[in-house]
């Protein structure tokens, strides 16, 4: 509970934060809401020599509807995302996920950017951002680039974000035809993290599901698409049968050792839950149609 000494810088702009990152290299960690980093530091599992606090850069906060895109600043808190009518209306799965992160205190402090950058396998937001086809806008010393969520999550606590880069926005496509989405999870009774969490996004044309994106976290080392379920849904008529068929194929393409395993839930059980929660996510999404 008592971290070793570290230097603390408070950046007032993205440029300043980037230059501090350049200056301190691997010794530095960015501090946003602090809900992943501070506990690690208190238990001395993480011992960064330098903290660069970006938490007060106002330009990185807020939710905007930008044409067909929902643009969310990385310092936007889970609570603000969950409460946003724009997010609820255009990306309900993300509002669902943000609303079930931790508890009220965590949601009031924790940020979407910090959450995605930390890439905890059991975190709720990655599956939602992935299923919604989100993009992560990042800036580094060589300028800005955009990474599709499909390419962002690479493994256990590992992302495409470079050590000298900062997330500057999360963009969620929100145009086109009728789209419904939802996120549901099986929370661990101790941590509240997802043992299995599933986000489902369905494009609808009348009763026909024209396309589907389904993604899960908690089950794997990082958030992953459930392509078997997606294929089962594409072109199907929205119905209990279609949902059941998709749930049946939720674990398709994964091996037993792709699934996380711990004393609370074995890989076999997680694989089973993946089907159960895929069905529940699809049901919840279609209830919103």
């Amino acid at each position: 509970m008592y971290p070793p000494k570290f230097d603390y810088y408070r950046a007032t702009s993205v440029d300043e934060a980037l230059s501090l990152l350049q200056q301190h290299g691997d010794n530095a960690k960015l501090l946003a809401g602090g809900h992943s980093l501070i506990p690690l530091m208190k238990t001395r599992l993480a011992q960064p020599a330098v903290l660069i606090d970006i938490g007060r850069i106002d330009a990185l906060k807020g939710i905007q509807v930008d044409g067909d895109t929902l643009r969310i600043g990385p310092l936007t808190t889970h609570a603000d995302i969950a409460a946003s009518e724009d997010v609820q209306g255009r990306a309900a799965a993300l509002a669902d996920a943000a609303g079930v992160v931790g508890d009220v205190q965590v949601r009031n402090r924790g940020t979407i950017g910090g959450n995605l950058a930390h890439a905890d396998p059991a975190s709720d937001l990655p599956a939602a951002v992935l299923a919604l086809g989100g993009e992560i806008e990042v800036r580094g010393p060589n300028g800005s680039r955009t990474v599709a969520a499909d390419d962002f999550f690479q493994g256990l606590f590992t992302t495409a974000l470079g050590g000298d880069e900062i997330i500057t926005a999360i963009r969620i496509p929100a145009g086109g035809g009728k789209r419904v989405s939802a996120y549901v999870k099986f929370p661990h009774p101790a941590s509240g993290y997802a043992v299995v969490g599933v986000a489902a996004v369905l494009e609808l044309d009348g009763q026909t599901i024209t396309s589907a994106r389904v993604a899960a976290n908690g089950a794997f080392e990082c958030a992953k698409r459930l392509t078997g379920a997606e294929q089962a849904l594409a072109g199907a008529t929205a119905s209990d049968e279609a949902i059941a068929a998709a749930a049946q194929r939720a674990a398709e393409g994964f091996n037993a050792d792709d699934f996380m395993s711990d004393i609370f839930a074995s890989s076999e059980y997680r694989a089973h839950l993946l089907g159960v929660y895929t069905r529940r996510a699809l049901q919840k999404a279609l209830e919103r149609a």
Binding site: H188, P189, A190, S191, Y193, I263, F264
Partner: peptide
């Protein structure tokens, strides 16, 4: 002890 913290050891929450 592999349930060494409140992240692994589940005490009942009021909502349970």
């Amino acid at each position: 002890l592999i349930t060494g913290t409140l992240m692994d050891y589940a005490v009942p929450k009021a909502r349970f």
